[in-house]
Amino acid sequence: MAWNEPGGNNKDPWGGGNRNDGGPPDLDELLRKLQQKLNGLFGGGSGSGGAAGGSGKFPWSLVLVVVAVLYGLLGFYQVNANESAVVLRLGKYHNTQTAGLHWNPPLIDHVTKVNMTEVRTERTTGQMLTEDASIVDVVLQVQWHIDDAESYVLRVRDPLKSLQGATDSALRHVVGSTTLNGVISQDRTRVSADTQKRLQEYMDMYQTGIRIDVVNLTDAKAPREVQDAFDDVTKAREDEVRLQNEAQAYANQVIPVARGQAQRIIEEAEGYKSRVVESARGEAARFDQLLAAYQQAPNVTRERLYLDAVQQIMTNTSKVMVDVKDGSNMMYLPLDKLGVGSSSQVMQRKDVSPEVVDEVYQRITDRLRTESAKNRRSQNVR
């Protein structure tokens, strides 16, 4: 039942004792009791005298000390090795803290931590117009990290949105100055490099504090409506490249062989030239020596030259015609037949020695030479 209803014995829940008037509790009394409880908690004096006389004092100094300790503890913060902390004091840039334990007054300084080593990725897609008035679908990925924490936090309102807009602008500028075939196949590396360079210039100009690490042109293709025709063109270009490579391989195979043959012919010609020149020089030297010998002994030299010429001619012929002196008949000597017969007879007659054959041959030669000398002397006498 309620404390002020009949039978409730007028028990006051506020601790005011029995009240006969049934009125509201005394606020001053409640405050005094609360002060007494706080004094008991913090070691202050309590008792009936303090409650009655109201002479107890609240320990505000202790409360201030506790608040100061809590305020100081709340001001400590840790900056990791991969982070930087931008400190604003009363809304104005104060400094940038590096890794370690730091303290800043709460409610006065505002600290913003930024991860400086995390590599982030942004992706952009779209249809763009090339230099040759063709449309191409492009997919580009940009990897970046924060290079300047102060600029990233304070210089730009939304660095990510600025990065996306600058990426689209840089990519459209580079694609607009490249042909369709270059964007899709031949110049993809150059497109990525030029886009990265231009995008970094934009980031530096906007003072975003962003450093572009890598720009990858992951995909570039013609629109779906003309994809079939473009595939045919691509196949034709691939065939062209393949045929060029085959022709180059054939040329690489044939040209060295031709060069080797040409070099061999040149070396043979040089050898023939050297041989002919040296032979001519030898013949000239031999002629000079013969001339000197002829000037000393003309008859002997003439005879020797004649015999050498006859020997050379006789060596290269198998038939000899001999003019018989004082006769009208000419003797025909088939040396090839005689040689065969002589060799066969020699082979048949084993009792004839090679020394006998040489002796006979020497006698015949001397006889021919003697007769030839007599003929020449008789002609001279006439």
Rank of each mutant, 00 (worst) to 15 (best):
M1D: 05
E5P: 08
P13C: 02
W14A: 04
G17W: 03
N18I: 05
R19E: 08
D21F: 00
G23S: 12
D26N: 14
K33T: 08
L34R: 08
L34V: 05
N39I: 03
F42V: 01
F42T: 02
G43E: 05
S46C: 01
A51G: 15
A51M: 15
G53W: 12
G53A: 05
S55D: 11
S55P: 10
F58M: 00
P59L: 12
V63Y: 10
V63L: 13
A68S: 00
V79L: 11
S84G: 02
V86P: 04
V87G: 09
V87K: 09
L88E: 02
Y93I: 07
H94K: 09
L101D: 09
W103C: 02
R120T: 11
R123W: 11
T124K: 14
T124H: 11
D132Y: 03
D132F: 01
V138S: 06
L140T: 04
S151F: 09
S151D: 07
R155S: 05
R155E: 06
R155H: 03
D158C: 06
L163I: 06
D168G: 14
S169G: 07
V183M: 02
S192W: 00
A193L: 01
Q196G: 11
Q196I: 02
E201H: 13
Y206C: 14
V214H: 05
D219C: 08
A222G: 05
P223R: 04
P223T: 00
R224W: 06
D232I: 07
D232Y: 11
K235C: 04
E240P: 02
L243M: 07
Q244T: 06
N245A: 08
R259S: 13
G260P: 10
G260S: 13
Q263M: 03
E268S: 09
A269K: 10
Y272H: 04
A284I: 07
A293D: 09
Q295V: 04
N299E: 05
Q311C: 12
K325S: 13
D326R: 06
D326S: 10
G327S: 08
S328D: 14
S344I: 15
S344P: 08
R349A: 15
K350I: 04
D358K: 15
Q362L: 11
T365A: 14
T365K: 15
D366E: 09
R367K: 11
R369Q: 04
S372A: 15
R382F: 12
